[in-house]
Simulated assay, not measured.
Amino acid sequence: MATKTTENTTPETSQTGTTGKKLAVDNATVDKNDMKNSSLHKFFVSALKDIYFAENAIIEALTKMEEAATTEELKEAFEDHQLQTKKHVSRLEKVFKLIDEKPEKKECEAIKGIIKEGEEIIKSTQEGSMTRDAALIIAAQKVEHYEIATYGGLAQLAITMGHDKVADLLEKTLQEEEDTDYNLTEIAETFINFDAEQED
């Protein structure tokens, strides 16, 4: 919808040439009130509140996962990801500001369920075992995949609505989530999964 501007461009927008993105940004500025009332904008804000809740919940969950982990490698990975998640919260607050919305949390049932599953893993696996670490990695990757899906979708919506700066911030977080997911796989495949397989 945002690219539907040909004849009705202002002199300012027509100077941008053939880049539809810039036209979309200018249109978003001109029709700011209309955009804020649109169904897509409302959904976008609701989804941001959802992931804002999720990121804050993940910070707390990562503390428990770090304490429960057996190997130093996994403990460090959880600690690093917790620090990174705090940056993601701060980045989301910038996103809210860029679209002139107040940062608010909306309870996210999906992340609550994933975190609860992680807590069950801690209860059902033996302390100090590699099996626990292997299971914790899978639990952490479920969190990552939820975040990857969310940030990927939100970044594309931001582009569609002409929020280029917002899209850049969301894509930066998306890349970091993908990197974390890859690093967790590396830790698992280097030795944890093999050692877990040797346990009784």
Results as ranks from 00 to 15, higher is better:
Gln84Gly: 09
Asp50Ala: 01
Glu66Tyr: 14
Lys106Arg: 15
Leu74His: 15
Lys42Asn: 07
Ile51Lys: 03
Glu147Ile: 00
Glu67Gly: 08
Ser129Lys: 04
Ile114Glu: 05
His41Asp: 11
Thr160Asn: 11
Gln156Trp: 02
Ile122Gly: 10
Ala139Met: 03
Pro103Val: 03
Ala140His: 07
Tyr52Asn: 03
Thr150Asn: 08
Val143Arg: 05
Phe44Tyr: 10
Leu98Asp: 07
Lys64Gly: 04
Ile114Trp: 02
Ala155Gly: 08
Met35Ser: 11
Leu62Ile: 04
Thr71Pro: 07
Ala139Val: 04
Cys108Ala: 14
Lys86Trp: 05
Glu101His: 07
Arg132Glu: 11
Arg91Asp: 15
Lys116Ser: 14
Glu101Gly: 00
Gly153Ser: 09
Lys32Trp: 15
Met130Val: 00
Lys94Ile: 09
Val95Cys: 09
Val30Met: 11
His88Ser: 14
Ser124Phe: 01
Tyr52Met: 00
Lys116Pro: 05
Leu157Asn: 08
Ile138His: 12
Lys97Met: 10
Lys123Thr: 06
Asn33Met: 12
Thr160Met: 12
Asn33Gln: 15
Thr85Met: 06
Ala158Trp: 06
Glu76Ile: 08
Gln141Tyr: 04
His145Phe: 01
Lys49Glu: 12
Ala158Ile: 01
Lys112Gln: 13
Asp80Phe: 06
Thr63Pro: 13
Glu120Cys: 10
Ile121Cys: 00
Asp31Ser: 09
Phe43Cys: 12
Ile137Cys: 07
Phe43Ile: 13
His81Pro: 04
Lys87Leu: 14
Ala135Tyr: 05
Lys49Ser: 04
Ser39Met: 02
Val89Asn: 08
Ala155Arg: 05
Lys64His: 07
Glu119Cys: 13
Phe44Val: 05
Tyr151Lys: 01
Lys97Trp: 03
Val45Arg: 00
Ala54Cys: 00
Lys142Ser: 14
Arg91Val: 14
Glu66Cys: 07
Lys123Tyr: 01
Lys123Trp: 03
Glu104Tyr: 06
Asn37Arg: 08
Glu60Thr: 09
Leu157Ser: 08
Gln82Pro: 05
His145Met: 08
Ile121Thr: 15
Ile122Thr: 00
Glu93Asp: 13
Thr70Cys: 08
Ala57Trp: 01
Leu157Pro: 00
Tyr151Met: 05
Leu48Arg: 06
